[in-house]
Design a protein around this nucleic acid. Structure first.
Lengths: 238, 238
DNA sequence: CGCGTCCTTGAACCGCGTCAAGCCAGGTGG
DNA sequence: CCACCTGGCTTGACGCGGTTCAAGGACGCG
């Protein structure tokens, strides 16, 4: 994936602009937006920086992270094609999270002023954006519940399911994203050692397998059953 | 606070409808909305129920809770005057949280169809609603970080600060809401005993005091300092 | 082939959740 | 008006789950 020229929002499969704005406004956004390619691991914006506008993920995968006391990171949220990063910002508004691409990603940037104009002129777009945030808030609530109330093993299983939900599975049932054990740990708010132990346990039960760093989901239903019944993996017989 | 008649959105201090909709649409909402008084402890909507529309808190205090494995509850979010409960729902959309009033509260209900019409006709309203959800998502991220990465003592201090932020302090520096220890525990994802211990510790340091169930914040700066520096309360000398 | 990075596995410590007992305030009824 | 009861809160003791520490192993890369 290499882009040398800007792609119009009209041709963008998932983008809210292309789907819900009038043709004339799509042109205006095309003219005013800034489409960039971010390499794997690159920061899209930084915690503490001023919010100049909104980022839309054209194509790629992104993690939204928050730094904890210098060293540790918490992954707050994931984003992929069609998702939105950051938010409209009042002046002096700063980001409290950073966004980092998990793979080479194309991201559109729309500044605050343009965004406001687009929103006022295209209420259906604004409505959909509103729904998007409401839906993310809902997911966020789910994560709060998960982090707050579940034992470590279930947090990890839940995280695996979450990864499948966001990124999906490829033809070989691999989780379709290059996610490290460390990143799974940062999502589940657990240490890497526990993730490793849990993955080993799930492999022993043939529920998942691994191929290098790739995780293969053999039995999605079983994983869902585990969280649904709060089952302890070790309770299962082989 | 007793209401026998519906109050117009135009006279509602915090409501997004009154502030950002045109006069004619305020009338339409007044005609179509449903304003109800919920007594303390009453459910406004239930986890698992169909989403028929949006609730706006005219006046009062509400907790959004999620049930965990039958018995335990996690408080996901708090709401007060001007805040929004639930979200616009597609058909067959269900709530994954319940909303319960913490004190007698007046809540306006706007159904999905009316909400959609209002949004399309009043883009500035929709824009503000979008910003509201984005801002709640931001707060939610903060809570995820807090629950995931902080030791119990800091979770509790953070929760106290959060309560102050949402509900404020009255003239005697009481947290202006009737919150039980159990509810603080459900916010911080900790058990009640730990909350009790921590409150005792903070009292010994004169940072807070209590009057029955009321919590008095003597030294807000100190509380903020504790979370900012990840300080252990027991490390402080009296 | 040697080095670095990421992952795995084992062992030990300790934070915190659970259990249990007692306390305090408010409400109720004799 | 006091005795009792109930529900929420406090405090202590104990044990377990999970984090931390430490020692390899696997893999890729120069």
């Amino acid at each position: 994936m290499v882009i040398n020229q800007q792609k119009s929002c009209a041709n963008c499969k998932h983008c809210l602009v292309g789907k819900f704005c009038s043709p004339e406004w799509i042109s205006k956004v095309d003219a005013g937006k800034n489409q960039l390619l971010y390499r794997k691991g690159q920061y899209i914006f930084y915690e503490g920086a001023l919010v100049f506008g909104l980022h839309l993920v054209t194509e790629g995968k992104v993690k939204i992270i928050s730094n904890v006391s210098g060293s540790k990171e918490q992954i707050v949220r994931l984003a992929t094609d069609g998702h939105v990063l950051g938010r409209w910002g009042d002046k002096e508004d700063i980001y409290e999270n950073s966004a980092v691409s998990l793979e080479d990603s194309v991201i559109c940037f729309i500044n605050n002023d343009l965004l406001h104009d687009v929103c006022l002129a295209n209420p259906e777009f604004t409505f959909q954006l509103m729904k998007y945030y409401a839906s993310e808030l809902r997911k966020s609530g789910k994560q709060i519940k998960c982090l707050g109330q579940m034992p470590v093993k279930l947090k990890i299983v839940e995280t695996l399911l979450h990864l499948v939900e966001i990124f999906g599975l490829d033809s070989k049932r691999n989780i379709a994203a290059a996610i490290s054990r460390q990143e799974i740990a940062e999502m589940a708010a657990v240490n890497m050692e526990q993730v490793s132990r849990e993955i080993t346990a799930l492999k022993k039960r043939r529920i998942i397998s691994t191929n290098g760093k790739q995780i293969i989901i053999n039995d999605l239903e079983k994983l869902q059953e585990i969280v649904a019944t709060q089952m302890d993996i070790l309770d299962l017989d082989s």
